[in-house]
C-alpha cells in the first residue's frame, strides 16, 4: 500500500499531467518482456551448446541473436517515442455511467506515419482493454471506464504499451491528462415539479407556496416562423412536410412567470436522490425549452433557457456540497 502510494507520487513527478503528449525518455519505460527473457535463456543455451560442441556457427548465431536483442532495445524505444496522444472532446457524463474517453493518437501526423506496430491501451492498473495498430490507425480510440460519483474528477492515468518490433521488449507509459471531468448526478426519473415564486429572495421561507404542476405537454397556442436557435422539437414537421415552410410551434407555457426548481430540505441520505431528480427535471425542462431557475440553497441560478443555462444548472447540481444539506438540516431541526 505504501509502495503503491510512493509509486503514484513518483509517477506524478516523473510524468506530470498535460493536455497532449509526445513521448520521450522522461515518460517511456522499457524492460525485456517475458518473451525477451525466454529469448535470453535461448541465447545462453545456444552459447552452452556452441561451446560444448566447439561449434563456432552456433556461437555466431548466439551472438547475432544477442546483437538483435541489443538493437531492438533502441528500435523499440525510438518507435514508441513517435507516439503522440491527445485527449478528444468528451460527452456529458452522469454518475455511475460509463465515461468514454476519446484518444487521438498520431492524429497530426496522419499523412506520414512514423510509428508502427500494435499498441495496447488501457486504464493504468487495469487490463489493457483496447488496442490499435499504428500502421492503420483509426482515430479516435474510445476508452471506456465506470465513473463513480458526481463532482470533479481527474482522469485516471492511461497506459500505452507496445511490443514492437520483435516482442523482446515491453515499452510502456502511464499518461495523466490534466483535463478534469465533471460528473453530473445520475438522473432519477420523476415528474417535473416547478414552483412559482414571486421573488428569489424569500424562497427559503416560502415552503408552502402554491405548487403548480407543470404538464409535460403544454397547450398549443399558435405557429410562428422558425428562427434559428429555437428547439428542433418545436418545429412543426407536418407543416414542413406539406411544403409550407418551417414553422415553430408556440405553447401557452409558463414562460412569462418565473418558475423555479427547488432543492427540498432532506436528510443527508436522500440528498443524492433529490439531486438526481433535479437533474432529471433540468434535462427535461431544457429539452422542452422552458425557462426555469434553480435554487439549491447554496447557489441560486436565476430563470433562463438555453444550453449554457442547462450546463450551468447541471454543474451546480454536480458540485452540490456533500455536507451542506446535513448542516442546513441540523439548523432547521435546531429551530
Amino acid at each position: 500500500m505504501f509502495l503503491q502510494h510512493y509509486f503514484v507520487n513518483w509517477l506524478d513527478k516523473r510524468i506530470p499531467a498535460a493536455n497532449e503528449f509526445s513521448l520521450n525518455h522522461r515518460n517511456i519505460f522499457i524492460f525485456p518482456s517475458k518473451f525477451g527473457l525466454l529469448y535470453l535463456a535461448l541465447c545462453s543455451l545456444l552459447f552452452l551448446l556452441g561451446t560444448n560442441y566447439q561449434n563456432n556457427l552456433m556461437l555466431l548465431l548466439c551472438y547475432f541473436l544477442l546483437a538483435v536483442f541489443l538493437v531492438t532495445l533502441l528500435t523499440s524505444y525510438s518507435n514508441f517515442a513517435q507516439l503522440k496522444v491527445k485527449l478528444g472532446r468528451m460527452p456529458e457524463v452522469f454518475a455511475h455511467d460509463e465515461i468514454h474517453l476519446s484518444l487521438w493518437c498520431n492524429a497530426d501526423s496522419a499523412n506520414s506515419i512514423t510509428q508502427h506496430g500494435i499498441v495496447n491501451v488501457g486504464i493504468m492498473g487495469q487490463k489493457m482493454s483496447q488496442w490499435f495498430d499504428a500502421d492503420t490507425i483509426d482515430n479516435p480510440l474510445i476508452l471506456t471506464y465506470q465513473s463513480q460519483r458526481r463532482g470533479w474528477h481527474t482522469l485516471p492515468r492511461i497506459t500505452f504499451s507496445t511490443y514492437y518490433p520483435l516482442g523482446l521488449y515491453k515499452c510502456w507509459t502511464h499518461l495523466a491528462f490534466s483535463r478534469k471531468i465533471l460528473v453530473y448526478p445520475k438522473p432519477v426519473s420523476c415528474g417535473v415539479s416547478l414552483q412559482h415564486v414571486s421573488s428569489a429572495s424569500n424562497i427559503a421561507h416560502d415552503q408552502h407556496s402554491a405548487h403548480h404542476a407543470v404538464q409535460n405537454n403544454d397547450d398549443f397556442s399558435h405557429l410562428k416562423i422558425y428562427q434559428q436557435g429555437e428547439p428542433l422539437h418545436h418545429v412543426a414537421w407536418k407543416q414542413l412536410a406539406k411544403g409550407r415552410g418551417m414553422y415553430s410551434k408556440q405553447f401557452d407555457g409558463l414562460e412569462h412567470v418565473d418558475m423555479w426548481l427547488l432543492m427540498p430540505t432532506c436528510s443527508s441520505s436522500e440528498v443524492e436522490e433529490q439531486l438526481g431528480k433535479l437533474c432529471h427535471q433540468v434535462q427535461e425542462l431544457s429539452r422542452q425549452g422552458h425557462k426555469f431557475g434553480l435554487d439549491l440553497h447554496y447557489l441560486q441560478l436565476s430563470p433562463d433557457t438555453g444550453e449554457s443555462h442547462r450546463t450551468a444548472c447541471l454543474k451546480a447540481l454536480a458540485l452540490y456540497p456533500h455536507n451542506y444539506q446535513s448542516s442546513a438540516f441540523a439548523q432547521a431541526a435546531g429551530q
Binding site: 551472438y63 541473436l65 538483435v68 508502427h116
Partner: peptide
Amino acid sequence: RTLILTLQALPIGLLLF
C-alpha cells in the same frame, strides 16, 4: 525493416564472436 535490423545487428554479432 527486418533487413535494416539484421544489418545493424550483424557487425555487433561478429564483433562479439
